[in-house]
């Protein structure tokens, strides 16, 4: 679906790497994960704010709370952009500032700029099949930390520091205004370095380097979209391919087996009065997990499309032709 040109980037914020606190935000609307393309020479940029928190978490498979953390919250402000190199090839970026806090206990919260994420998104196939339109997408991503933030301090770390290479496939099918999108992502994560020079997982490691297990992400989204509105329900799952469980009453560790399944809703509105301006919002809730917090999150953002095409027409109008 490439015609909804006003449709903004709706930040993934590279939160894939903040699993323990805020994995649920991955369930948010996310342009690198949706079946939407920017048209050639259009640049959509904007900012997003999100808040998520959890009181209960899974220590391995054991669900518990912890009065020494109380409620752990993560606030995030992200800036992101999406540029159409062509109608079928987009490049995207996002960079978030993250702040964590625990309402109880004595641990000091963390804040800082986290990881820069870059994606190339390509739509090789779009064809009318049956009553609707089928389109396929491939998204390659790379993310890396841009500051030297503390990683080995979960659940209050702002990220996991690994450099990630991701490859995603998306299938979208739209009948009139109704659509469904399914996606699978493989995330390869680099080793990370921590401040300690030894650590115990299921055995003792005499090194400061930590092998980060790779991960898979699955998502399914369905809803209604037009040139002015999008409303959708999102089901997403993150599964770590390896890693180990937090042992009883231990602290979490970056290479834990962090899994989670979240449900959410998201919506976008293209402001009629200002061409190219849109607002987004949504929320999500973690329904199942392992070695992660059971977070609930909300978010909202404002985006604007700059059209670098020489022609006078707005992107939206041009889209009507298709």
């Amino acid at each position: 679906m490439k015609i909804t040109l006003w449709y903004p980037v709706t930040g993934r914020l590279s939160v894939l790497s903040i699993l323990f606190s805020v994995l649920s935000i991955t369930a948010m609307a996310q342009t690198d994960a949706d079946a939407i393309m920017m048209e050639k020479n259009n640049f959509c940029t904007g900012a997003m704010y999100s808040y998520s928190s959890w009181k209960n978490y899974w220590e391995g498979t054991f669900k518990r709370d912890n009065a020494n953390f109380g409620t752990v919250s993560t606030k995030m402000i992200g800036i992101m952009g999406n540029y159409g190199i062509s109608d079928k090839l987009n490049v995207l970026f996002s960079i978030p500032y993250v702040q964590t806090k625990a309402t109880a206990g004595t641990l000091h919260g963390q804040k800082g700029v986290q990881d820069l994420s870059l994606w190339i998104k390509y739509m090789p196939f779009e064809k009318k099949i049956g009553p609707g339109t089928l389109s396929l997408y491939a998204v390659g991503g790379f993310s890396f930390p841009v500051t030297n933030y503390v990683v080995d301090y979960l659940p209050l770390s702002i990220g996991l520091r690994s450099k990630n290479i991701s490859l995603r496939g998306l299938v979208d099918y739209q009948v009139k205004n109704w659509f469904a999108t399914a996606g699978v992502t493989y995330i390869n994560r680099s080793n990370i370095k921590i401040d300690r020079d030894s650590y115990y997982t299921t055995e003792l490691h005499l090194t400061n380097e930590v092998d980060m297990p790779d991960a898979m992400q699955y998502q399914f989204r369905a809803g209604w979209r037009s040139d002015r509105f999008i409303a959708e329900a999102v089901l997403s799952n993150w599964t770590t391919m390896g890693g180990f469980d937090i042992t009883k009453n231990n602290m979490p560790f970056p290479s834990n087996k962090m899994n989670m399944t979240a449900v959410g809703v998201s919506g976008k509105y293209n402001v009629k009065a200002v061409d190219g301006l849109s607002i987004i919002g949504g929320g999500n809730y973690t329904v199942a997990g392992r070695n992660v917090g059971q977070s609930t999150g909300i978010y909202g953002g404002v985006f604007y499309i700059l059209n670098f095409n020489k022609k006078k027409k707005t992107t939206e109008q041009s889209s009507d032709k298709k």
Binding site: N188, S190, N191, H205, D211
Partner: peptide
Amino acid sequence: SCTKSVAGRTD
């Protein structure tokens, strides 16, 4: 980048 096993200092 998958070849990323970590050796200990005294391995």
